[in-house]
Amino acid sequence: MTTPVIELREVGRRYDDGPPALHDVTLTVRPGEAVAILGPSGSGKSTLLNLIAGLDRPDAGTVTVDGVRVDRLGEAGSALYRRSKVGMVFQFFNLLDDLTVTDNVVLPARLAGMGRGQADRRARELLETLGIDRHARTYPGRLSGGERQRVAVARALMNRPPLLLADEPTGALDTAAGQDVGRLLADLNADGQTVVVVTHDLRLAESCTSRTVRIADGGITEDVRSHAVAPEALR
C-alpha cells in the first residue's frame, strides 16, 4: 500500500474559549485521490485546510503531508514546506496585477531558487497544457475569471507539488467558468495529481472528485467514495 499524501490523526483545534473548530479528526488521502471536503460555513473545513497547508497548528493530534510532520514546523519550515509540497488555489485567485501571467506563474519557482530560464520553460509548459499560453504576456486584469483561475492553477503546479489544495475555487466564477475549472481539476487528477477541494458546492465535488468527506461542527460525519476511485488510491 502506498504512503499517504495526507495523514491526520485525532486532530483538534480550538480558538479562544469557543467550541472546538475541529475535534478528533482522522483522515487519510492517498496518492492519486481526488477528495472533496464539504460542509457549510463554520463547519471546520477551512480550519482543516489551514492545518494541511501549514498555515495553522493543531492543539491536539498530528498532521503529516508527504512524509513531513507539518504540525512540528516553525515559521521558516512551514514556508519551505508550502513551496515544495503544496500548491494552493484560492477563491479570489490572489494574482499580482502588476505582473504578467508568466511572471505570476514563475514566482513560486523563483522563490524556491529555480533559475529564470528553467522557470520560464516550466511556465510555458504549464500555460500550454492549461490552454492559456496565448496570454503569457498579458496582465491578469485583462483576463476573464476562468482564465485567471487557470493562471492560479498553473502557479500552484509550478514546483510540481505532490498535493494540490483548492479552496472554493469556483466561488468567484459564473456557472460556465466554474464548470470549466471543475473539468480542469478532473483532468489534472486523471493525470495523477492528488487533489483536495474544499467547497460547499456539491456540483463541483461531483464533477472533479471521487471521494466526499463531509464535515459538521468540527467533525467528520461522512466519508464516501464513488465508483470512480483512482486506481493508485487503492494500492
Score class of each variant (00 low, 15 high):
Asp103Ile: 11
Arg83Ala: 06
Ala53Glu: 08
Arg110Asn: 00
Gly44Ile: 03
Gly77Asp: 03
Leu38Val: 05
Val86Lys: 02
Gly54His: 02
Thr62Trp: 04
Asp103Trp: 12
Thr64Ser: 10
Met88Ile: 15
Leu73Gly: 06
Ala60Asp: 15
Phe93Gln: 03
Ser46Lys: 01
Gly39Ala: 00
Ala60Val: 11
Val89Arg: 07
Leu49Met: 15
Gly77Tyr: 05
Phe90Ile: 01
Val35Gly: 07
Val106Gly: 00
Leu48Asp: 00
Leu38Cys: 05
Ala79Cys: 06
Ala34Val: 07
Gln91Trp: 12
Thr47Pro: 01
Ala34Tyr: 08
Val101Leu: 11
Asp66Lys: 03
Val65Glu: 06
Asn94Glu: 15
Leu80Asp: 15
Ile37Tyr: 02
Asn104Thr: 11
Leu49Ile: 03
Gly42Asn: 04
Gly87Lys: 07
Pro108Gln: 08
Leu96Pro: 00
Val105Gln: 05
Phe90Gly: 02
Asp103Thr: 10
Pro40Tyr: 13
Arg83Tyr: 07
Gly44Val: 04
Gly54Asn: 01
Ala109Asn: 11
Pro108Leu: 10
Gly61Pro: 02
Leu73Trp: 12
Pro108Asp: 13
Asp71Gly: 10
Arg30His: 10
Asp97Leu: 09
Pro40Lys: 14
Arg69Lys: 12
Thr62Pro: 00
Leu96Glu: 03
Thr102Gly: 01
Asp71Met: 13
Gly74Asn: 11
Thr100Leu: 12
Ala53Trp: 05
Pro58Lys: 14
Arg69Gly: 04
Asp71His: 15
Gly67Phe: 15
Gly42Trp: 02
Gly61Arg: 02
Asp97Trp: 10
Ala76Pro: 00
Thr64Gly: 02
Ala60Leu: 13
Leu49Cys: 02
Asn94Asp: 14
Ile52Lys: 04
Gln91Val: 06
Ser46Gln: 03
Leu99Val: 09
Val101Ala: 12
Gly77Arg: 04
Phe90Asn: 03
Thr100Cys: 12
Leu48Trp: 01
Gly61Glu: 07
Arg30Asn: 09
Ala34Arg: 15
Thr62Glu: 15
Ile37Ser: 02
Gly61Asp: 07
Asn104Val: 10
Tyr81Arg: 07
Gly77Trp: 05
Gly74Arg: 07
Leu73His: 10
Leu96Gln: 09
Tyr81Lys: 09
Asp59Ile: 10
Leu99Tyr: 15
Pro108Cys: 10
Arg83Lys: 06
Val65Arg: 04
Asp66Leu: 04
Gly54Gln: 01
Gln91Asp: 08
Gly61Trp: 03
Leu107Tyr: 09
Asp98His: 15
Arg30Ala: 08
Val86Pro: 00
Arg57Thr: 11
Ala36Cys: 08
Lys85Arg: 14
Gly44Asp: 03
Ser46Ala: 05
Ala109Pro: 04
Asn94Leu: 14
Val89Lys: 04
Gly42Arg: 02
Asp66Pro: 04
Pro108Arg: 05
Leu51Trp: 04
Arg30Gln: 07
Ile52Asp: 01
Ser78Ile: 06
Thr102Lys: 10
Leu95Tyr: 01
Arg110Pro: 00
Gly32Thr: 13
Arg57Cys: 07
Arg57Ser: 13
